[in-house]
Simulated assay, not measured.
Amino acid sequence: MKQPLGVILAGGQATRMGGGDKALLTLGGQTLLARVEERLAPQVADVALNANGDPERFGAFGLPVIADTIQGFPGPLAGVLAGLDWAATQGAEAIVTVAADTPFFPCDLVPRLLLASEGQTHSLVLAATKGDAETKSKSRSGLIRHPTFGLWPVALRDDLRDALQGGLKKVVLWTDRHGGRECLFPSDPFDPFFNVNTPEDLARAEALA
């Protein structure tokens, strides 16, 4: 497989932060978006940003800004679809998505997802970490899946579009349908997929940074 493209998902409404763009919040003198782009860019062939509204507010980053094509904020899968449609215009086979509010995700995210996809008909892999007893009772594998961090094949974009238009919102229902795998990442000393949802999370991220 050719090196995948990277898509930073920033299309949410940030309701727990009081609205606005979480990606533009500052952490240790840098925006969350700048930190995320720095981690992702060396791992992929090119990077785009999935965000809705006026793209000019991200103009300083020099990234292509792609909006959801499914209206009504149906969740992260709409951003995945927007990324897949963009990737198709670039002749790419796959994308890797990351969340714009998760500044500490692994620096080897992409190679590990690619390794986990070997032998699949469609390269479809979600990042995961170990769960607790409650998680194990609810999850097929006992792992916590992180649906905004995944490897997604361009070949399934029309299937995903049909599913979203049919009302699907839960990521794992669609990935399970297509034989999606999980790629386990260590969560010690802290979960690398920790994301900034609240002002308290931002304070914790400052301490971690």
Rank of each mutant, 00 (worst) to 15 (best):
G131H: 01
V65E: 04
R145K: 12
F194Q: 04
S187Q: 06
D68I: 00
R16Q: 11
F149E: 13
D132I: 07
G20S: 06
L115P: 02
P42N: 13
Q43S: 08
L5N: 05
E38C: 06
L32C: 05
G75A: 08
A34P: 02
I8S: 01
R140P: 12
V98R: 06
E56H: 09
F105Q: 07
Q43K: 12
F58T: 09
E206A: 15
R35S: 00
G11A: 09
G29K: 04
A34R: 02
F61Q: 01
G11F: 02
R145C: 08
T175H: 07
E206H: 10
F73I: 12
R57G: 10
T175K: 03
L9S: 05
H146P: 07
L40W: 08
L202D: 05
G18L: 05
P64M: 03
A10R: 07
S139E: 13
N50A: 15
D108Y: 10
G62H: 06
L164W: 09
F185E: 03
I144E: 07
G166E: 07
G19Q: 07
G166Q: 04
E118W: 05
A14N: 12
G19V: 09
G79V: 03
P153S: 02
A78Q: 06
V47C: 12
P42F: 12
L202N: 10
A92Y: 02
T102C: 03
V65R: 01
T148K: 12
K2G: 09
W174N: 02
R112W: 01
R204V: 12
G18R: 12
L143G: 03
I8C: 11
Q30F: 14
T26E: 15
V125N: 08
Q90W: 12
V47S: 09
G19K: 01
A127W: 03
T175Y: 06
A207W: 11
K22I: 13
G91R: 14
A155E: 13
L109G: 05
L143E: 02
H122I: 12
Q3L: 13
S141M: 09
V36F: 00
V110Q: 01
T89Q: 15
A41M: 11
F190Q: 10
P111M: 15
A116F: 06
S141Y: 03
I95Y: 02
G167A: 03
T69M: 10
G72K: 00
V171I: 05
L156G: 04
R157F: 09
S137D: 13
D159G: 10
F149L: 05
L115N: 14
Q120L: 14
R57S: 05
A88V: 10
V125F: 06
T97F: 01
L126M: 08
G150F: 02
